[in-house]
Design a protein around this nucleic acid. Structure first.
Length: 433
RNA sequence: GGCGGCAUAGCCAAGUGGUAAGGCAGAGGACUGCAAAUCCUCCAUUCCCCAGUUCAAAUCUGGGUGCCGCCUCCA
């Protein structure tokens, strides 16, 4: 199995840290609003990665955090006259409502910043002690110059970044690129006691602290959107590796963006669609199928028509499954197997190979979905071919059924495959004639 | 200014050296009381343009053009 590693910018053979177990950390949302489609892509994609690893027989330890302490939460809470942590809790629940709808498995652990303040403080203290961080007033900054490898993930040097720096320079910092590990409390903000006075963690430090706590050093896969490569993941590496947790993560995976008219969907551009708005118009399995219909590193353009097309495609799969169920529900007759049975079964196993080959190649879900279409066609042909259905034919159908279930255990698009409730009389006649 | 990505049929989209998957739409046919569904056939001599490497390139190299992203919170 090969994974494209952002760190080396190439596909690499995937060799987990432990033979039978894979450790994954996927950056979760800052919970100050309902999630939008752009948030849903990594959710669904990395869920599919996890499902495929499970399919391959690995145990997967999957961690996804919630950033529940953050400027945006504080601002939003102020607007709504709510307690920031209560607001964050509310949107965590709403997050689960959406992700459950999209058939995303819950992480093994969903750590929250607010519940890991001690771990964060310990990590910062260590960085300060090692000379990688320094205190200014009530704040603590990471000294990027103290970490020689700074920029190694995003492929840029500190010098490159100086040139285009658009940030206003905080003169208290030793280097303009130094970033906050700890922010001194301002009135009315949630804060915790620390060696540097009351305050709260900066954005990046949480992932370093929580990933280390739950997965240890050198865990297997760290995932998130492309826009997290810099500065978020770059900073995570700096913090963790400067603290001796080296390497921090081994495979870095980043998904491409959802676009609207070819432009990035983002909160700052205001061109985003909430998952629940979309779910008002389209079934969740269609949204999931649509998200998986393009390779995860490519941009994926969104509009209603594209979802409608995805819906038609998924319908084709579902029809095949329904026809298979109907045939399997039909009483077996005595006699020989269909002459096609053997070829059908051979075809099934080659389709399984194709599916695995696609997924083994950096999780090529687009190719995998096309294999699902081919499976649908084979099923339709076999089920529709003339002749009685013998017990032997039913065995073949059971094999197809198993393959469908396996594909679906990875793609997660057939939440509930309809049983043959509205059994079609004509097909029954046709199949017996 | 620095760094990176993408460009494949009407649309979506796989495909990193061996002669263009799959889906949607469209055309014809089979089946069907009609329809739906399903099946069969057709639908890119060609992969943005130019040059080069090679027996062979959508795939590699160089040069263009166009679009997008990161460098600031963002999945």
């Amino acid at each position: 199995m090969e994974i494209y590693n952002t760190f080396t910018r190439s596909k690499e053979e995937f060799i987990p840290r432990e033979q039978d177990q894979v450790s994954m950390y996927v950056c979760g949302p800052t919970t100050y609003n309902y999630i939008h489609l752009g948030n849903a892509r990594p959710l669904v994609f990395f869920d599919t990665v996890r499902r495929y690893l499970l399919y391959k027989g690995y145990k997967v330890n999957y961690i996804q955090n919630f950033t529940d302490v953050d400027d945006k939460i504080i601002n939003r809470a102020r607007e709504e006259k709510m307690d920031p942590l209560a607001l964050a809790r509310k949107y965590i629940e709403e997050f689960f409502a959406d992700s459950d709808a999209l058939n995303v498995m819950r992480a093994n652990i969903h750590p929250k910043v607010s519940e890991h303040i001690n771990e964060i403080i310990e990590l910062i203290e260590y960085l300060v002690a090692q000379g990688h961080a320094y205190q200014v007033d009530g704040d603590v900054y990471f000294a990027v110059r103290s970490f020689a490898d700074y920029g190694k993930l995003s492929g840029r040097s500190l010098e490159d970044m100086q040139a285009g720096a658009r940030v206003e320079v905080d003169l208290r910092k030793k280097d303009p690129m130094d970033f906050a590990l700890w922010k001194g409390a301002k009135p009315g903000e949630p804060s915790w006691q620390s060696p540097w006075g009351n305050g709260r963690p900066g954005w990046h430090i949480e992932c370093s602290a929580m990933a280390h706590k739950y997965l240890g050093d050198g865990f297997d896969i760290h995932g998130g959107g492309y826009d997290l490569i810099f500065p978020h993941h770059e900073n995570e590496i700096a913090q963790s590796e400067a603290a001796g947790h080296k390497p921090f993560a081994r495979y870095w995976m980043h998904n491409g963006f959802i676009t609207i008219n070819q432009e990035k969907m983002s909160k700052s551009l205001g061109n985003f669609f909430l998952v629940r708005e979309i779910l008002d118009k389209f079934p969740p399995d269609v949204v999931r199928w649509y998200l998986l219909s393009t390779h995860y590193r490519s941009p994926l353009d969104f509009d209603d028509e594209k979802l409608a097309v995805a819906g038609k495609g998924l319908e084709r799969i579902k029809t095949a499954v329904r026809l298979l169920y109907e045939a399997m529900a039909f009483p077996a007759s005595d006699g020989e197997a269909k002459t096609e049975a053997k070829a059908f079964e051979e075809r099934l196993s080659s389709l399984r190979n194709e599916f695995e080959k696609a997924m083994d190649d950096d999780f090529n879900t687009a190719l995998a979905t096309s294999v699902f279409f081919e499976l649908a066609r084979e099923v339709n042909i076999f089920v529709g071919s003339a002749g009685r259905i013998s017990q032997r034919d039913k065995d073949s159908m059971e094999k197809a059924h198993l393959l469908i279930k396996d594909f679906n255990s990875v793609l997660g698009v057939l939440r509930k495959i309809k049983q043959p409730a509205n059994f079609c009389w004509r097909q029954m006649v046709q199949m017996t004639s």
